[in-house]
Simulated assay, not measured.
Amino acid sequence: MANALPEPSHPAPAADTGTPGISSARLQAFSDAVIAIAATLLVLEIKLPEHEGVWAGLRHELPALASYAVSFLVIGIVWIHHHNLFHRVRQVDRALLLLNLGLLLTVSFLPVPTATLGSRLDGADATAAAVFYSLAVGLTSVWFLLFWHHLCRRPHLLVPGALAEARLARRHAVTGPVVYFAAAALALVTPVGSLGLNAALIGYLIVNRRSPTARTRPGAAAGAAPDRS
């Protein structure tokens, strides 16, 4: 990959593959905005039928509410893990920017499979909808595996002392894709069970998450269990 041209007034070292003008903080701010919009769009597909009462309408919308809840938590985990990851990054290169765009593309697409599953979970197309949903959610976790792999291969992009933590995170990052894609396979047998497996993984990630202080302190608690989403 070709390095970006250094700024004339501040020549970059030969090993520096950073992208001038794009800071980690700026990338996080843009990502936060996109992730927040994606989380907001999820709820727009939930509409109570006008011809039914409130409680009957809520029962009718239970599949949509369940898929909404799981997807909202998925996006929440993505946001927290993204926040955690980029607190370990001191410099952004072009590949990291492209990986981040890939993640945002996947996250911003989640309202589509969420709406699809919510409207078909109790219908004839439930299997296809559940497979579609699990694959889409699984792709969000694949990006984090790619993030950590890239950072392990480019340790100069990390804050000092974070390489060991990045390597541990890369190993644990396999958990998400494996479970989500297992949920896609399970959907062939039981679509509701597939959604339940997705929810169980989210619950596991929430329960095993470290404290916010430990998450946001660059290089802190090196060697402690990292985020696994």
Results as ranks from 00 to 15, higher is better:
residue 137 V to K: 06
residue 46 I to V: 15
residue 117 L to R: 00
residue 49 P to K: 09
residue 48 L to A: 06
residue 208 N to E: 03
residue 117 L to P: 02
residue 204 Y to M: 08
residue 111 P to D: 04
residue 2 A to F: 00
residue 203 G to C: 13
residue 37 I to E: 01
residue 76 G to D: 06
residue 92 V to G: 05
residue 177 P to I: 10
residue 115 A to S: 14
residue 26 R to Q: 12
residue 29 A to D: 06
residue 66 A to S: 14
residue 168 L to C: 07
residue 61 E to A: 15
residue 85 L to A: 15
residue 13 P to Y: 00
residue 97 L to Y: 03
residue 128 A to L: 11
residue 2 A to L: 13
residue 140 T to V: 06
residue 136 A to R: 03
residue 164 A to H: 07
residue 69 A to G: 07
residue 172 H to C: 00
residue 28 Q to C: 14
residue 135 L to Q: 01
residue 43 V to Y: 03
residue 33 A to E: 05
residue 6 P to M: 02
residue 203 G to A: 15
residue 167 R to E: 10
residue 116 T to I: 06
residue 9 S to M: 08
residue 176 G to H: 05
residue 65 L to C: 10
residue 216 T to G: 04
residue 54 V to C: 00
residue 202 I to Y: 05
residue 227 D to Q: 11
residue 212 P to R: 08
residue 139 L to G: 15
residue 158 L to P: 11
residue 73 L to Y: 04
residue 213 T to N: 02
residue 4 A to D: 14
residue 155 P to Y: 07
residue 3 N to G: 11
residue 90 R to S: 15
residue 218 P to Y: 08
residue 185 A to Y: 03
residue 119 S to I: 00
residue 146 L to A: 15
residue 140 T to D: 01
residue 222 A to F: 03
residue 131 V to P: 02
residue 192 V to C: 01
residue 146 L to N: 08
residue 115 A to T: 11
residue 122 D to K: 00
residue 2 A to C: 00
residue 150 H to E: 03
residue 185 A to Q: 01
residue 1 M to R: 04
residue 163 L to E: 12
residue 33 A to I: 06
residue 43 V to H: 02
residue 223 G to A: 08
residue 87 H to Y: 08
residue 101 L to H: 07
residue 124 A to E: 15
residue 173 A to V: 09
residue 200 A to V: 05
residue 23 S to Q: 06
residue 198 N to K: 04
residue 19 T to H: 09
residue 169 A to G: 02
residue 220 A to Y: 04
residue 216 T to R: 14
residue 55 W to D: 11
residue 1 M to V: 07
residue 178 V to F: 00
residue 16 D to P: 10
residue 115 A to C: 09
residue 65 L to R: 13
residue 96 L to T: 12
residue 183 A to S: 14
residue 50 E to F: 00
